[in-house]
Design a protein around this nucleic acid. Structure first.
Length: 500
RNA sequence: GGCCCUAUCGUCUAACGGUUAGGACGCCAGGUUCUCAUCCUGGUAAUCAGGGUUCGAUUCCCUGUAGGGUCACCA
């Protein structure tokens, strides 16, 4: 059997769409699953829509996600215009295509009148039967021309797709589509077929939106006399209203998710499960595990809504399990084996440092690295994404104003609260810096509660509020450790003064 | 509008014609607890409709309905 070769063929529009990431992923998975090759091709044949730096950006992101392509340099279509021109002319020579001199104004008018008459907009074949002499004369005169495919008449195109099965379309429903534009650049259809053939692509894995142009591609393969690759069309990613996933209804650029602190492992994991399933109930996968488990048979036909809530859940799972262990390792030097995510018993081999650095970047710069790490640790079970750190942990570097009434726990009263806070202040004052650790502080305060006939709510609650200015936060003892002795005592003193 | 595709809880999905239609997210409730989150337990909720085929349809076929994609010298 010949080698499996897939390709990811984006057009460089400036950012990578989350749906494109999934397409790239599936191509990568199928290639790697079969010890084949995953190739990158840049489809930049639209001169009007060139975006500076888009190609570099694209490659950077693919590499970030570990979707490394096997060609040293991506194939770039704009460097191959000559080849496309020659192939287009070959089809003209064989009467399978023809020159068309219609102006875009004429074409626009045509479309307009057709639409008004409720007809299907379609090229009317105006230039289809021009004589050789007429064509040469116009060409000589320097008239602008495109090359159109000469659609065969009364034929049925039979196609096969790995996920959608057999599909038939009549050629009368198809148009004499353009192969070569008047700027001598190829259209998608032409370049795509030629490149896939020359790159020896075995499986064309692409989004569902291409299904309507599949018959054109089949016809082109037949016109050139080339063998067809296997086609695999992927169900679309959808907005919540079931339309094609678009910018208007939220983030779609992979960069945006990365910037917000969605871990690439979580993004990849979530996106892999959109339109594909492992057939069993596992849901945590590393890239390697996806490669091992991937299969075309388990690709669905139905579009899948991109559900940010589920992405949040995946991301928070990764953050919790990974960071808790990571922070422990970094702060306390604990030796931790490759981190295990419990649901699924998955071994996650993450570059801990990179993720830590990413998390640190969401905390103000003037905070020490050590403090940043401690903050990350205590908030790691409370985040949907790392960017939330900036807001949810802000009380650490800036105590918000709060009303003194908040200091009193709902089951407590003013007297008990005052007693609790004063005792706490006294106790903590006597506590050595060296004993200023969460476990120890917790023990000390618990003893204090027991010895003074108070409840936990009388003591722990007011400490929380005085330290954070909030009713919801990590446990008071965790905050104590994070803030350190000096700052903690200062804040508790403020609370005591408020209650006087 | 033409063509094409699709149809299981709100969402992602499982169920090679026979299951009390399973899991996950979300949501709700309870437990743990000084709060929130985590964690544990439980609950909620689905086969688009109508015809066939069959002893038996979520599953196969047809029709309808609904949704989507696509109809450029963009990809």
């Amino acid at each position: 059997m010949s080698q499996i070769r897939t390709r990811f063929a984006p057009s460089p529009t400036g950012y990578l769409h989350i749906g494109s990431l999934r397409t790239a992923l599936f191509n990568y998975l199928w290639a790697k699953k079969n010890n084949g090759q995953f190739l990158l091709r840049i489809e930049d044949t639209d001169q009007a829509r060139l975006v500076e730096g888009a190609q570099e950006n694209l490659i950077k992101i693919l590499q970030l996600f570990g979707l490394n392509f096997d060609n040293h340099e991506p194939m770039v279509q704009s460097t191959r215009t000559k080849i496309y021109q020659e192939f287009a002319q070959k089809l003209v020579a064989e009467s399978k295509a023809y020159y068309c001199f219609c102006s875009s104004e004429r074409l626009d008018d045509l479309r307009k009148t057709q639409t008004e008459k409720k007809l299907v907009p379609k090229y009317d074949g105006h230039c289809r039967n021009l004589s050789q002499e007429e064509v040469s004369a116009k060409l000589q005169a320097g008239e602008k021309a495109v090359i159109r495919f000469k659609m065969p008449e009364n034929q049925t195109v039979e196609m096969h797709d790995e996920v959608y099965g057999d599909i038939k379309v009549k050629t009368e429903d198809l148009d004499d589509f353009v192969l070569l534009k008047s700027d001598n650049f190829p259209t998608y259809h032409l370049a795509n077929i030629i490149d896939d053939h020359e790159m020896e692509i075995s499986h064309v894995i692409r989004a569902d939106e291409w299904l309507p142009s599949l018959p054109k591609h089949i016809l082109l393969y037949e016109a050139f006399g080339w063998p067809q690759p296997t086609f695999v069309h992927l169900p679309l990613l959808l907005n919540p209203d079931r339309s094609k996933l678009s910018k208007r209804q939220g983030d779609v650029a992979v960069e945006d998710f990365v910037k917000k602190g969605y871990l690439k492992e979580a993004i990849l994991n979530y996106v892999a499960l959109l339109g594909w399933n492992p057939k069993d109930e596992r849901e945590f996968f590393t890239l390697e595990e996806l490669v091992a488990n991937f299969s075309l048979e388990h690709i669905n036909k139905t579009g899948a809504i991109f559900d940010i809530q589920k992405l949040n859940w995946f991301n928070s799972q990764y953050i919790r399990k990974v960071f808790y262990a990571t922070a422990d390792e970094v702060i306390y030097g604990k030796k931790i084996e490759p981190h295990t995510i419990e649901p699924g018993n998955l071994m996650i081999k993450l570059k801990n440092k990179n993720i830590l650095e990413l998390a640190q970047s969401f905390i103000p710069n003037d905070i020490s690295l050590d403090l940043k790490n401690k903050i990350i640790k205590i908030f790691s079970s409370r985040l949907n994404n790392l960017a939330e750190l900036a807001e949810v942990a802000s009380f650490v570097w800036e105590l918000p104003a709060y009303d003194k009434a908040m200091l009193i726990f709902k089951k407590s009263d003013l007297e008990k609260t005052k007693t609790g806070l004063n005792l706490t202040l006294e106790l903590l004052n006597q506590t050595e810096e060296i004993a200023w650790q969460e476990e120890n502080l917790k023990q000390l305060l618990s003893d204090l509660v027991a010895q003074n006939n108070l409840t936990a709510g009388d003591v722990f609650w007011p400490i929380r509020v005085s330290l954070s200015g909030r009713e919801q936060s990590p446990s008071p003892t965790e905050i104590l450790e994070v803030l350190g002795k000096e700052e903690s005592l200062k804040r508790i003193q403020v609370a005591v003064d408020k209650l006087k």
